[in-house]
Design a protein around this nucleic acid. Structure first.
Lengths: 158, 158
DNA sequence: TATTGTTATACTCTATAACTATA
DNA sequence: TATAGTTATAGAGTATAACAATA
């Protein structure tokens, strides 16, 4: 049985361990959202993240990035614009498109989240042995590459 | 500068790497929710997870586990009970308490999620080298312990 | 006519405050 | 009276469908 298994296939035990412990990481990751005031709902946070990374874009592009439909994205932008976290203006090239840009306040809000998350992770990493920390970095890095590959493959298929 | 730094303190680079690559893991983790039909909203899923692990409990206990207030939890249970994923009945000991229990359908829905997540993670782990996989398991395991410690400490403080 | 975006409408999720029933 | 839970009420988030404006 063992001999017939390909070398690169993970054994059941390691897959289970990863799933089990990954949950702790996800918990810590999501916790940051509870500690930034004034509270920004997760959806709004995702909009800001997309705009911060992708730069200004129109509504359709934003909706696509969010995996949402334009109407939902439009409503989200209503609230973000009202809160001053986002600029919404008619596009230069086409009068039927809007250009969405993250505002300086929006960027500041994002940075507040990042700071909490960095602090949380630093606290945890400090408790780990240097060896385990190095292993985590190495394993997570390759994991990250593999995730990108898998997501790109499934995106091509869809 | 280097000499004055404690041995167990992570360098900035490894902390950044972990934060950067952790995002890919979180993305993969959350993706499972998009692929189970009929779609169960994240909040309802969390209720089912809590009940599946903690066993039957009353509304206050559930709300506490969710980090929500009883009224929100009550409304959540309305929908879950209507969907047949949850049993809600007057407690045996006290007529003013309710006992919430996950139903067989609820457990089945949870298992559908777990299956998608297991498959997603297996796909990714297969792409990794055995060494990186072992490192990931090791690093993530110690990370998990450290998270538990940190969360318990901050819970005691609060 | 096709595309871009917004607006009705309806549902889930969440919280505050007011309420009912039990202990 | 204090506790357990539910029920208004209100606002955020999401989707379908109908709509306006531009290309």
């Amino acid at each position: 049985m063992m001999a017939s298994r390909r070398r690169t296939k993970p054994d059941a035990t390691s897959a289970d361990s990863v799933l089990l412990q990954a949950e702790a990481l996800v918990l810590l990751w999501e916790r940051a959202e509870d500690w930034v005031v004034p509270r920004v709902p997760p959806s709004q946070l995702r909009v800001l993240t997309v705009l911060d990374r992708g730069g200004p874009m129109n509504l359709s592009a934003l909706a696509h990035e969010l995996g949402a439909i334009p109407s939902s994205a439009s409503r989200l932008c209503d609230r973000l614009a009202a809160a001053g976290l986002l600029h919404r203006e008619v596009s230069a090239g086409s009068r039927r498109e809007v250009t969405l840009t993250i505002s300086r306040q929006g960027r500041a809000r994002l940075e507040a989240f990042a700071a909490v998350r960095r602090a949380d992770f630093a606290n945890v990493l400090e408790l780990m042995s240097p060896a385990a920390r190095a292993n985590l970095v190495d394993g997570l890095t390759e994991f990250g590459y593999a995730v990108t590959e898998v997501l790109e493959t499934s995106a091509r298929e869809a």
